[in-house]
């Protein structure tokens, strides 16, 4: 038995240490992309209208002075990673600066910059394959999970670059939550375990009461509490698709993210569930910055305050053609391609 104990100890240790070794992000492109600067300098700065990161916020600031103040506060007070996780989520801006992305040698995003103001909903629209989802996944470092995926540029969460070595990968993902296209609750876990899964996974200790409060709070915010309060011990996989998606939203909220990314959260859902999720998004927008990718124009118009139109023309990498207030993108866009797309003439 002693030998067995030793063996199993060694086995656990092996599991543990190998998980602890955060690989020096071999696939994060900052290093690799640094090795190919020629790609970024060979052409002058793209001529697209709204691409300079400063111009986009200026639009918003004009429209909404509150956003400006909150942005200012966040910029003055650089948020450390863990600080605000336990407290009420303070608002954070997220800004992409000159993001390029590659899958192997194929470039899918070319120096995309976008400012996503705090406490509001930004919609990313555009035809399939234009790099919206890739862009979204770059915002919380999910991009580097894909083998041979590389990137260049910066993602600033309230002014702090999440690709900077001072940010732990896991902390970045914790601060910037994500909801996926297909609802993905952990099927082996009960509803309440699903909500608190993030705590367990990120090593946050919480007492029984804290957990119960958190479960109720997050499920309420996700608009699911009244439907599941009587069956919190049932498996999360037994819920309907829309409920599962809201459970995933609750799960993301439980680690108190500052930003919530949503990758076509309603595309697998029926209209009623979709409307329910949209209500949830509207309610959440005041406390967490939301970025949503959607193929549904009406949805973008309904839920978002800002929109960015992505387009990848004929074998070229994706760029943002136009970004700005949703009313402008859908009402009187500057670029004819935006107008064609939002009016359903292509894509």
């Amino acid at each position: 038995m002693g030998f067995l104990v030793i063996q199993s100890l060694a086995f656990c240790l092996l599991l543990f240490t190998s998980a602890r070794q955060r690989r020096p992000v071999k696939s994060v492109g900052r290093h690799r992309a640094a090795g190919r600067p020629s790609r970024d300098v060979e052409r002058p700065q793209p001529q697209a209208v709204d691409q300079e990161p400063v111009s986009a916020p200026s639009n918003v600031e004009l429209r909404n002075p509150d956003v400006m103040t909150s942005t200012g506060v966040n910029a003055i007070m650089p948020t450390t990673q863990l600080q605000a996780i336990r407290g009420p989520a303070d608002l954070a801006t997220i800004e992409a600066k000159s993001i390029s992305a590659w899958f192997d040698e194929r470039k899918v995003l070319d120096r995309v910059s976008l400012f996503m103001p705090a406490g509001s909903v930004t919609a990313l629209i555009g035809p399939s394959g234009c790099g919206k989802s890739t862009f979204l996944r770059i915002l919380n470092r999910m991009h580097e999970l894909i083998p041979n995926a590389t990137l260049a540029g910066e993602v600033l969460l309230s002014g702090s670059d999440i690709y900077d070595p001072s940010w732990k990968l896991t902390e970045a993902r914790k601060a910037i939550g994500m909801v996926f296209q297909k609802p993905n609750p952990f099927p082996a876990m009960s509803i309440c375990d699903n909500v608190t899964a993030g705590l367990k996974l990120t090593g946050i200790k919480a007492s029984r009461e804290e957990k119960d409060d958190l479960i109720e709070e997050c499920l309420t915010k996700a608009g699911l509490w009244n439907e599941v309060r009587d069956r919190l011990r049932q498996p999360g996989g037994a819920l309907s698709g829309g409920q599962q998606q809201r459970l995933c939203i609750a799960r993301s909220l439980a680690v108190r993210p500052k930003v919530l990314l949503m990758d076509e959260p309603c595309s697998a859902l029926d209209p009623t569930s979709t409307r329910r999720i949209e209500q949830t998004i509207a309610e959440l927008a005041s406390e967490v910055t939301i970025v949503i990718v959607t193929h549904n124009m009406q949805q973008a118009a309904r839920v978002s305050q800002q929109s960015a139109f992505f387009l990848a023309e004929q074998g070229t990498p994706g760029v943002i053609v136009e970004a700005g207030p949703t009313s402008k993108i859908f009402g009187s866009p500057d670029d004819p391609r935006t107008s064609d797309y939002v009016n359903g003439r292509f894509g």
């Binding site: 599991l15 998980a19 999910m142 914790k174 994500m178 996974l201 993301s252």
Partner: peptide, 13 residues
């Protein structure tokens, strides 16, 4: 990916 997006390490996932 759901687990990773919550900030899980590989062991946690």
């Amino acid at each position: 990916e759901g687990a990773y997006a919550l900030g899980a390490t590989r062991l946690g996932m």
